[in-house]
Write a protein that binds this DNA or RNA. Sequence first.
DNA 1: TGTGTGACAAGCC
DNA 2: AGGCTTGCCACAC
Length: 106
Amino acid sequence: MTDPESPYAAIYAVVQRIPPGRVCTYGRVAALAGLPGQARLVGYALHALLRQSVVPWWRVINRSGRISNVYAADEQRARLLAEGVDVDETYLIDLDRFLWAGDDVE
DNA sequence: TGTGTGACAAGCC
DNA sequence: AGGCTTGCCACAC
């Protein structure tokens, strides 16, 4: 996040738009950020946010509705539970209830 | 400068 | 339905 023109800025902006108690998938965030199919970039960008709590990176999960984060999966699950998101012991999340389509706020 | 890898997604078998 | 393969971009060595 060195240049505002960098795709990372768009990713961060989208993640910040995710309402509390709601989660979003990498692909969804990527699409909203203007990077269709480039979900890997989202994961890579969020990887650098682990130190910065200015962005709710914990609200971003994979397409399977699970936390693939091997670096802070425990912390992410705790944060989601604090947000009101029901996270299973196997890091499974109900996308049908907590998935944010992005149409809540424009 | 070039090769390999990564918090993924979609397609195919 | 579930598992395997390919594509994509940016960054580390």
